[in-house]
Design a protein around this nucleic acid. Structure first.
Lengths: 109, 109
DNA sequence: ACTGGTACTTAGCAACACCGAATAGCTAGG
DNA sequence: CCTAGCTATTCGGTGTTGCTAAGTACCAGT
């Protein structure tokens, strides 16, 4: 989409991915494809992988290597207890921000 | 609030400030104080000033130096035509993101 | 003179998303 | 066989952004 989206994704993309993982385990390629489907047309391939490495190192997700029929083995990520906590915190932060922005949109015009 | 908020503000803070300016001209110190009032308790002093310099250099705002009774002169910023366009684009980007996130919050749990 | 509130500036830092290229496994077509 | 193409992940370097921390400057009241 553009630069605005790129900047806006900082901080939220992580929440998006964790939210996806809270529904079901998934692997990088799958997540990227799903996001593109949802209209995040310009999310770079590498971005999701880097993000997944980050959340893994923070201990928010568990990883399992699963062989694939169609290529190299997949790294399947699933949200653990700590990740769920973190996700809740993310939603609180998001809610706060979203409320202020909606207020601004109404009032400020 | 925390690190999540810091990251989430990237990309949105700019829109917030422009939205404020779309309602009325304002200067940095005033904007910072107002934001703190609204609950953005930890927005750093310097952050807003740097942001204002940026949007000025991009030609989104006009500036006027106005003497203050209580200190050094104020730099009063007002949104210009280009800034309004940019703000609209911001709202579109924001809407897109907010919709996806709300959907995720409902579905993904 | 000194303190405290107002108002802005600057330099250096950390985190994040992007870009481009590389690596690696598997399948199907020529 | 081997090349092309899809699947799947990794890595190094870049630009933007907000934070930290310090500094400058102006004025009022004590």
């Amino acid at each position: 989409m553009g630069k605005q989206m790129t900047e806006m994704l900082k901080g939220t993309l992580e929440g998006v991915v964790l939210a996806i993982l809270s529904a079901r385990p998934a692997y990088g390629y799958e997540i990227t494809a799903w996001l593109r489907d949802q209209g995040f047309s310009d999310i770079a391939e590498g971005t999701i992988y880097a993000l997944l490495v980050r959340v893994e190192q923070r201990g928010l997700v568990d990883v399992e290597k699963v062989p694939s029929e169609k290529g190299p083995p997949r790294k399947v990520y699933s949200l653990n207890a700590q990740g769920r906590e973190y996700l809740e915190e993310f939603w609180r932060t998001w809610s706060f921000l979203a409320e202020r922005l909606e207020q601004l949109r109404k009032g400020g015009n």
